[in-house]
């Protein structure tokens, strides 16, 4: 550390880059929360548990069943999407359009089930994935190559989601459903299918982010709740349902967290997120970017 509390410029540069890298993963996780919230009007309180689930799925496949890393990542994502589809019908479909509390309770309950199963099978010990990756240093801050790849993948997915929503038939149907569900049905849109796919896509984004985060960080069943808090912050920062807003909001949070960990300590991350959340809610509760 810098002498007498001074932090060198290159360390700050390193922290900045590391923040962008990890922040794009936070952004992808938040996007999962954001599209479900923005489009189904459901605050998915199983979000963090689903992130944790994906981490343990990848762990189960690689460590306990010896599946090669890339294959187990892809398998995890596939399972994540299927879980999203099933969870939609079990926990979301029937509470749509009902009182807000119904969907909060039902997704919260679903999250508790996931967390209970994870505790039961894996206990609370921190786990890591067996990842071998070269490390590059940016201004004395080490960043794993695989994290950089993960960040690029996450950013590409967020941009892809933007294109999907604003430039395709599927996306137009999604926006139509948001604006006027009955009118969308009158255009021949299968509204239930659109809502189900949107939910599954949201879960897929969350589990993708979880899997990519697990490549670089250790995790316990509780880890998901930290990323859930981050996701809420980012949704408030970036605006509801806007993929690019989520990505940029994630990067802002990532940079804030990494810089804080350089000048103070890594454990300050959630506090920083919370502060950002409160500041945003006070000065611009609608987010920095337009919503969907």
């Amino acid at each position: 550390m810098g002498v007498g509390g001074l932090v060198s410029g290159s360390l700050l540069l390193g922290g900045f880059v590391a923040g962008l890298v990890v922040g794009s993963l936070y952004g992808l996780a938040a996007l999962g929360l954001s599209i479900i919230w923005g489009i189904l009007r459901v605050v998915n309180l199983s979000h963090g548990a689903l992130i944790a689930m994906s981490m343990y799925l990848a762990y189960l496949l690689t460590v306990m069943h010896g599946v090669p890393l890339l294959a187990s990542i892809l398998l995890t994502l596939f399972i994540g999407f299927v879980v999203g589809v099933v969870a939609y019908y079990l926990f979301v479909h029937r509470v749509l359009g009902g009182p807000e509390l119904a969907s909060l309770l039902s997704t919260f309950g679903f999250g508790l089930i996931i967390l209970g199963l994870l505790e039961l099978k894996f206990g609370g010990i921190a786990r890591t994935l067996p990842v071998e990756s070269s490390v590059i240093e940016v201004g004395h801050v080490p960043i794993m190559t695989i994290q950089i790849i993960g960040a690029i993948v996450a950013a590409a997915i967020a941009i892809g989601a933007y294109v999907l929503i604003y430039r395709t038939w599927f996306g137009r149907a999604v926006r139509a459903v948001v604006m006027n569900q009955e009118a969308a049905a009158l255009m021949g849109v299968n509204v239930t299918k659109i809502l189900m796919l949107t939910f599954a896509l949201g879960v897929l984004f969350a589990t993708t982010a979880g899997t990519l985060l697990a490549l670089a960080y250790s995790f316990t069943p509780e880890t998901g709740s930290k990323y859930e808090l981050y996701s809420f912050t980012i949704v408030v920062l970036g605006g509801l349902g806007n993929p690019l807003g989520s990505l940029i909001g994630g990067m802002i949070l990532g940079v804030a967290e990494q810089l804080t960990s350089i000048v103070a300590s890594g454990s300050w991350g959630p506090l920083v997120a919370f502060l950002l959340l409160i500041i945003m809610l006070v000065i611009k509760p609608t987010g920095l970017f337009a919503k969907l």
């Binding site: 038939w169 137009r172 926006r175 009955e182 009118a183 255009m187 849109v189």
Partner: peptide, 21 residues
């Protein structure tokens, strides 16, 4: 529909495309 049910935040062109869904 009664009340027209247009998609207000979409452009006229996007509304027409939705018609051809």
């Amino acid at each position: 529909p009664e009340g027209r049910g247009i998609f207000p935040q979409m452009t006229v062109y996007e509304n027409l495309l939705m018609g051809a869904y």
